[in-house]
């Protein structure tokens, strides 16, 4: 009986150890609540939602590998856990407000999120903000968020899993992610809480 108790204690301790080393720190969830924007649906001329879970991404990565041009995209998506895109297209300007965008930005002030300041859109007047969530202990990347906006469109992209932000452009135009013509400036990062600072 004593041996059973010892074995149970050992297994319990091992489980705690495994969970503490493989799971993100408590409260770090890179999944955004994109549904906060649902109220814009009634004003939008077109709304697109894309949900790609891990199994679809794994399958897609196998077949992207067949084409040389797709190799970079394949490397990017093979370890991802999910890609979620919500995009609104409006017939005229002013159909969404900064408060609507703030509903997403406010989630990006949570611990772990940092704004990647070296990335911006080449299109004048367009906003393209890229945020990364990193695990507090290991600095592993847990996810990424993009807010892309111009006067008539608003798109939020949420990628879950490890992703190389330097190769993000390989995913533009794929999986519902819009073509943002992202270009890299300085590769420094800053905490997401100061997101209102100009790029």
């Amino acid at each position: 009986m004593k041996n059973l108790i010892k074995a149970g204690t050992l297994i319990g301790a091992l489980l705690v150890l495994v969970m503490s080393t493989s799971q993100p720190a408590f409260g770090q969830n890179p999944r955004l609540k994109i549904n906060n924007l649902e109220k814009l649906s009634s004003k939008a001329a077109e709304v697109v939602d894309v949900t790609l879970d891990e199994s679809m991404l794994k399958l897609a990565s196998k077949f992207l590998a067949a084409e040389r041009d797709e190799a970079e995209a394949r490397e990017l998506i093979k370890d991802l856990k999910g890609v979620y895109v919500k995009s609104f297209e409006f017939d005229k300007e002013g159909e969404y407000s900064q408060e609507d965008v703030e509903a997403i930005r406010s989630q990006l002030t949570a611990p772990g999120w940092t704004k990647v300041v070296g990335v911006r859109s080449k299109h004048d007047g367009d906003v393209a903000e890229v945020y990364l969530m990193t695990e507090s202990n290991t600095r592993n990347i847990l996810g990424l968020a993009i807010i892309a906006a111009d006067p008539e469109t608003l798109t939020v992209v949420n990628i879950i899993g490890p992703i190389d932000v330097d190769k993000l452009s390989a995913l533009e135009g794929k999986m519902g992610i819009p073509r943002l013509d992202l270009e890299k400036g300085k590769a420094s990062k800053k905490p997401a809480a100061s997101h209102d600072e100009k790029k």
Partner: peptide, 25 residues
């Protein structure tokens, strides 16, 4: 069936919902 794509177009007056279910390969 898991939600995959949803396109709601007011211009076309049409909504398209695509769901996916994995079946091995």
């Amino acid at each position: 069936f898991h939600p995959f794509v949803k396109v709601r177009s007011r211009r076309d007056g049409e909504q398209t919902f695509v769901y996916a279910k994995e079946l091995g390969q």
